[in-house]
Design a protein around this nucleic acid. Structure first.
Lengths: 189, 189
DNA sequence: ATAATTTTGAGACTTTTGTCTCATAACGAA
DNA sequence: TTCGTTATGAGACAAAAGTCTCAAAATTAT
């Protein structure tokens, strides 16, 4: 039940206080997932944050029966369909394990309660939200401003590990191109 | 110096209090823009929110010398490069008037000060931010999940007025396609 | 109103991307 | 290790999107 990555992620977000950190950590629920295990299903309301301790989660949606990947979250990152979840809107996304994974789940309601109970956790809550939104917005700008081929080059340069972890078909749908096109891009060069 | 749209936008976001509303409104700066006038230039740090009272603003970036449109904000909506601006990061975007426009500018610093001075404005501030982020995230999901052609159909259905206001070339770059392709889409049907 | 400028639609051609297919390679389970 | 399943690379063709171009509208300024 490792939580090294979790602590690494939380520490910079919470004012230094052993009690607050351990109070916070104690409310994360540990889960072990096999490849394909679903964390959030399309149509459900997202009620939690999912931190990846090991393995990875993929967020995808259904496009005329085909699964299209929106995000991959490797170990050390956190995901959620927070904006819709908070508003009580069913998610269009499914979040599932892309491989055997260990995750830590923090219920949104629980976090709200902790925020009221502990001002340091309140600060954490704000920083967490802000970080999630900043990451999300950076990610979506990247996808808006780059062509599929540029996205591939970006990934190659900035998170090459992802290429080892995700199948070509999954990567292709993530980049917004056909598998054949991705093969071509890799072929030349 | 009309502010009808501005009041319409602010009212639902601020707890009922004539004083707070008028305090807030008094800190918006009125500007009249001619087509092409620049509100925020690529490379500058965005320090304000821009509310469109009439006309529209376009947000674009430079892609190898070509201007690509990211957003159009028609009258009654608000825009900003808030996330980067807040972090002190120079914007990659230029925001300019797409036609003769009237806008209301609210400085971010000013808003922060008002938040400290008036708890009702604090509530407003939170709601404003949340609304901006929700809109942004909905918009970017839409662009991520739809093909260029589907985006056109979406606009046609949900904001047909935009088609009357923006030139085909500008619309095409907004939708992520070539002008020729947009012409083809409109031709069939 | 008239001239100058900008925008538009569409033909002809090129390039890119997608579909279908299949043999080979890699992987997972018994 | 072996068998069955899934992933990969690539050929052949089809479809879609992009480039270049230009004449006809539409818009703007004088």
């Amino acid at each position: 039940m490792a939580n090294v990555k979790l602590l690494e992620y939380l520490s910079p977000l919470i004012p230094d206080s052993a009690e607050s950190v351990s109070l916070l950590v104690s409310h994360f629920e540990h889960k072990v997932l096999q490849k394909g295990d679903i964390v959030l299903k399309e149509g459900e309301i997202c009620t939690a944050f999912y931190f990846v301790e090991s393995g990875h989660l993929r967020t995808c949606y259904n496009k005329e029966g085909v699964k299209i990947n929106m995000h991959f979250h490797l170990e050390g990152s956190i995901t959620s369909d927070h904006i819709n979840g908070k508003a009580g809107i069913p998610s269009e996304f499914t979040i599932e394990a892309g491989e055997k994974s260990e995750i830590w789940v923090l219920n949104r309601e629980t976090l709200v309660e902790l925020c009221h109970a502990d001002p340091k956790i309140m600060i954490f809550g704000r920083r967490l939200l802000s970080r999630i939104l900043v990451d999300l917005s950076a990610h979506s700008n990247l996808f808006r401003m780059y062509t599929p081929a540029e996205r591939y080059q970006y990934i190659e340069k900035n998170s090459p590990h992802l290429l080892q972890r995700v199948s070509l078909s999954n990567l292709a749908s993530y980049l917004g191109m056909n598998r054949r096109t991705l093969t071509r891009i890799r072929a030349k060069k």
